[in-house]
Design a protein around this nucleic acid. Structure first.
Lengths: 195, 195
DNA sequence: ACGGTAACTGTCCGAACGGTCAGATCTGAC
DNA sequence: GTCAGATCTGACCGTTCGGACAGTTACCGT
């Protein structure tokens, strides 16, 4: 039935994600993935043109979200750009935790990808830093922006034993504090009805 | 002369570091390293028992420093532990920038190492977070600690075009601000005669 | 001079792995 | 039923790579 065949593609993606995250991209062979879902390696290569294509397809959703964010940020400036960037980046990081871990743990391999190559990643990173720094050129602001973004990235990749709500709030306030943008605690507390 | 033979070991390490950083650990073959220094692959394997041993020896200095830091922190508590941890971690990160980048880009491979395996890394990370969080168990404090440490780590790995002095100062103030330990700006500014 | 040890190398090997291909099977439309 | 196209597979291939090994050279103490 069509269900089985079209479902195989998704099941292959799910297995690949799981295995890539636990054993790494290079540490996972096509045979591993095929065995995990119970199909042949040839069948796997019928659904994906090659191994890199699997990784690309796994990371595409995150890539698109970050790409969209990048476009939206282009029109913003100052504190508005910084806060929007941080909020959105935290959201993306939490929504794609496993993909973020995959990316975080396999940066060297992802950097060699044709679509999501190192130049794309570096470009996005630089523009994100630019936004988070509020378009400031002061090294201190840009380094603070790098800490905030890198910190969110790394924290998202490390699966800490906290629920999404806690993580979102703490990542947000932490990152904004890094930037010196003390989120008027009164406003946040009342919004979240906490403390 | 003995100089040549004992120097080969160091030259191999230097080449391996350079190649690992630029092409990744898995993306660099033993033949690549040997060719880079101009010796045979067999000679390379005379100096290092296997490929992993090269990576281990490259990362050992950083590992030892972090290990020492971990031991020193065990006796500290509260804000003192946090500030000491951040200061030392910034120092280590800057002193071993290339090794940090190597580690950052090849986490999946390093995690499989026998000596510096995933359990060692995770253990160190957890204890560092504990110290940076000032031994607090509040999720917000621990997540903030994770942001600070991850941010320093990621920023050190990304070779931003700033000199060590600028980076050290900005990393320090940024990370401490993340923790809510606003280094009384007046004191710092006057100390550095800035602004 | 000589013997031993450290440094070094050419050659070979086995295993792993990504990828190809010709064909088998299945499915749905007519 | 039959045909076309999609799906799936076993078998096979070429390459790459880490590593083993036997043998050679250089060095050094005696």
């Amino acid at each position: 039935m069509a269900r089985t065949s079209s479902g195989l593609h998704e099941r292959l993606l799910a297995s690949a994600l799981r295995l890539f995250v636990s054993r790494g991209f290079r540490g996972t062979s096509l045979a591993d993935i095929a065995a995990d879902v119970g199909c042949s390696k040839a069948s796997l290569l019928y659904h994906f043109s090659n191994k890199e294509a699997i990784l690309t397809e796994l990371l595409m959703p995150v890539g698109n979200e970050v790409f969209d964010l990048d476009a939206r940020l282009a029109e913003l400036d100052g504190e508005e750009a910084a806060v929007t960037a941080i909020q959105s980046f935290v959201g993306i990081t939490l929504r794609f935790r496993r993909e973020i871990k995959l990316l975080f743990d396999n940066l060297a391999d992802v950097s060699c990808l044709p679509d999501l190559g190192v130049e794309a990643i570096d470009g996005i990173r630089d523009r994100l830093i630019d936004a988070v720094a509020g378009r400031s050129t002061d090294p201190r602001d840009r380094i603070a922006a790098s800490i905030a973004l890198g910190g969110i990235f790394a924290t998202g990749a490390a699966d800490l034993p906290y629920d999404d709500r806690t993580l979102r709030e703490a990542l947000l306030t932490g990152a904004l504090r890094t930037l010196g943008l003390g989120p008027d605690r009164a406003g946040l507390d009342s919004e979240l009805g906490k403390n």
